[in-house]
Design a protein around this nucleic acid. Structure first.
Lengths: 195, 195
DNA sequence: TGAGTCAATTGACACCGTGTAAAGCGTGGC
DNA sequence: GCCACGCTTTACACGGTGTCAATTGACTCA
């Protein structure tokens, strides 16, 4: 379970991540990653089929290092659907800053690379199914407002968690992560949930 | 006020628009536009400095042809701030499908081209100032909920109108434009406004 | 000690789309 | 007959991705 991955591969993943952190995702080129990992440009292609492949692997790497699974787990233990919703929003709101730059880079590849698109869709599907579960739980407790179906509520919930929505409020409007979380929680309580 | 623009330039703008409509914005190349306008690729560069310039001009062209000014005007005439908000959301919600493909193309250029970024920011600033005005009016009528400042309310209003938010709900989740408009109206009434 | 293997290096190259440059061509005006 | 203008044609530079082939250096195993 430990070092199945080659040393160089790990170095490349770390290099990619580090570069994403400091530069805007788009202009991290293959040779930049190679240079940072102190390896030739060609060596990158020995480990990753193409740029998209590298980006996808890097997101997985970030998930592991940042313990995504651990972070997700807690919200399921919440006492009520409403509490679960709050926790889910907080979890994601705090995770977004970690993956933001990678996400942007991956997203930029979305239109041109089918693999990147699939990888992205996969993550988003996972995020959405968390929303759906939460809404179902709320509905099960009789707390879903009559104006919404489970689908529309889950869609809307999901949309408020999107990278772009978070980006606009924090990066463009200057909101803090806490403000984003609090507002999203309050909004969903005020719309989707029954008083 | 009429044909200051050369015939070829107009043909190019129409060609660009038409291609954006049918293909995904990203893979509309300069030579595609040229071919569609039945003109050499170089001729495009006689009229537009670069790709970003063409895209920017095309958005302006769409605004003119689609009578953006006319569409915007009506919401200002609303009786109350709340009514103005509804109209503003409806105006934008109905305009988004028209500009969507162009917007995507322009947005894709955002990271690499300063002009494209400036053009985009300019439009978004205009959209936001509409939000701000509306919220100010609502606040003036004593209808702004105590949980919000004018800035945060305008930010949030604006975020719900973003191209990405609309895209996610309609394109990805399959909502109709009407559903998007209705939900956005209801959400803002339920959060930002006092009962 | 020598052969085989494997990861990585080096250098060259094809491809694509953008943008530049220069010479040539056809039409219209005067 | 001349010029000006808009456009065409051809050619090329650039940057980034991805491919290919020959080579090196280290480690293993017989």
């Amino acid at each position: 379970m430990s070092s199945e991955e080659s040393e160089t591969r790990k170095k490349l993943l770390s290099a990619a991540w580090a570069l994403m952190e400091q530069r805007r995702g788009k202009d991290v080129r293959m040779q930049d990653v190679a240079k940072r990992a102190k390896v030739s440009r060609q060596a990158v292609y020995l480990h990753f089929r193409n740029r998209a492949d590298l980006l996808i692997a890097t997101t997985r790497h970030i998930d592991q290092v940042s313990d995504l699974d651990g972070r997700v787990a807690s919200y399921k233990a919440a006492a009520t659907g409403l509490a679960a919703m709050d926790l889910y929003i907080a979890f994601w709101g705090n995770y977004l800053p970690v993956i933001y730059n990678m996400a942007k880079a991956l997203l930029a590849e979305y239109d041109t690379d089918a693999d990147a698109a699939a990888a992205w869709d996969d993550r988003m599907r996972a995020l959405r199914s968390g929303c759906q579960e939460t809404i179902e739980r709320i509905a099960g407790e009789g707390k879903l407002s009559a104006n919404w179906t489970i689908k529309t509520a889950a869609d809307f919930f999901w949309s408020l968690l999107s990278v772009h929505h978070w980006e606009l409020l924090t990066k463009t409007c200057g909101w803090s992560t806490e403000a984003y979380i609090a507002t999203t929680q309050a909004t969903l309580r005020a719309t989707v949930c029954k008083a």
